[in-house]
Amino acid sequence: MRYRTIGDTTVSAIGLGAMPLSIEHRPDEARAIATVHAALDAGITLIDTADSYHWHADETGHNELLIARALARYGGDTSDVLIATKGGRGRPGDGSWTVTGSPAHLKRAAEVSARRLGVDAIGLYQLHKPDPAVPWAESVGALRELLDAGVIRAAGISNVSTGQIREAHEILGDGLVSVQNRYSAAVRDGEPEVRLSARLGLAFLPWSPLGGISRSSLDGPSGQTSADTAFHHIAAEHGVSPQQVALAWLLARSPAVIPVPGASRPASVRDSARAATLRLSAEELTRLEAPGRPDASS
């Protein structure tokens, strides 16, 4: 396993996105816990969750509680595991997602999340998404209050623009340690946020980092799939999965990047963890610059 840093905390270069363990089509609890344990066995020390990762309306915090149970039942040392949770979104049970960024809601949500996780202070608490009905500075100000009160040890922001990153950094200073936006081989419009995060010393945690990579193909702009892509060719050359190549490509984009791929099976998280040791050459990285297109060298 390779390692990177979030603030002053060292974590595995690949994290576990725990959302699939609690939302629609989730596995049973035995397999979910086995997936978390497989991640820990593979050396993963970053687990990404949120209070809104649940399915039914009365299940708020399902994923946080699941992670807490999985850690409690693990036979090894978990003292170096960083649990990153999020607040500010909700799920009313009809498949939709809501946004609530009021300071009162965020402060209350963080306190409840800490109790679910069974911790005195949350290692990393992230504002899940800006609320258009609440001034950004007010939502971020709630994170400042949570830091000052010792409810959280570090703060992050998610689904944000470069302007929102700068403003949050001005308010939170060293208390802001991470940005979590969508970024993958197929969705690369987050480059400005990646570069800004690196300049400010913030970790960048891509969500949906395997977006566009299916079991056998990379989805192109047309929605069609084909295994005739650079990702699949390079995977075959290394004898690994195309998902590993996609994660290794992300790691090569910036030392600030720490992907958090989701998993709902032990085999999936083990495969993702192996991407941390996959080194891509400069020539291979050049071949990967055209997402979803046939490998020009073939």
Results as ranks from 00 to 15, higher is better:
Ala155Leu: 10
Ala198Phe: 03
Pro209Ile: 02
Gly201Ser: 08
Asp271Ala: 00
Arg279Leu: 14
Arg265Asp: 08
Gly123Ile: 01
Leu16Phe: 12
Thr277Met: 02
Arg253Lys: 14
Gly141Asn: 06
His37Ser: 09
Leu117Pro: 15
Tyr125Thr: 08
Ile44Met: 05
Arg287Ile: 06
Leu172Gln: 12
Val177Trp: 14
Arg89Glu: 14
Val179Pro: 12
Ala276Ile: 00
Ser297Gln: 15
Pro130Trp: 06
Pro209Gln: 09
Leu205Glu: 05
Thr9Cys: 10
Glu167Ala: 02
Leu40Pro: 05
Val112Pro: 03
Thr225Val: 12
Asp8Glu: 14
Leu146Gln: 09
Ile47Met: 07
Ser254Glu: 01
Leu280Ala: 01
Gly190Trp: 01
Asp8Ser: 07
Gly211Asn: 06
Ile152Thr: 14
Lys86Glu: 05
Arg89Pro: 07
Ala185Arg: 04
Gly173Trp: 08
His54Phe: 08
Ala84Ser: 15
Pro132Met: 09
Leu147Asn: 04
Gln180Leu: 14
Val160Trp: 04
Ile165Gln: 00
Asp48Ala: 00
Glu289Trp: 00
Thr78Val: 09
Ala203Leu: 08
Val11Ala: 08
Gly163Lys: 05
Ile6Leu: 07
Ser222Tyr: 07
Ser197Asp: 01
Asn63Leu: 05
Val245Asn: 03
Val119Met: 12
Ala57Cys: 07
Pro135Val: 09
Asp148Ala: 14
Arg195Met: 10
Gly88His: 10
Ser197Thr: 10
Arg31Ser: 09
Thr5Met: 12
Leu66Ile: 03
Gly61Ile: 11
Ser22Met: 08
Pro132Val: 05
Gly93Trp: 13
Asp131Glu: 04
His25Gly: 05
Gly75Ala: 15
Thr100Gln: 12
Arg91Gly: 01
Gly220Glu: 15
Leu106Asn: 01
Asp228Glu: 13
Gly76Ile: 03
Ile258Gln: 00
Asp174Lys: 15
Phe204Lys: 00
Thr277Leu: 04
Leu285Ser: 01
Leu247Ser: 03
Ser79Glu: 15
Arg287Cys: 12
Ala186Gly: 01
Ile44Lys: 07
Val245Ile: 11
Ser214Trp: 04
Gly7Asp: 08
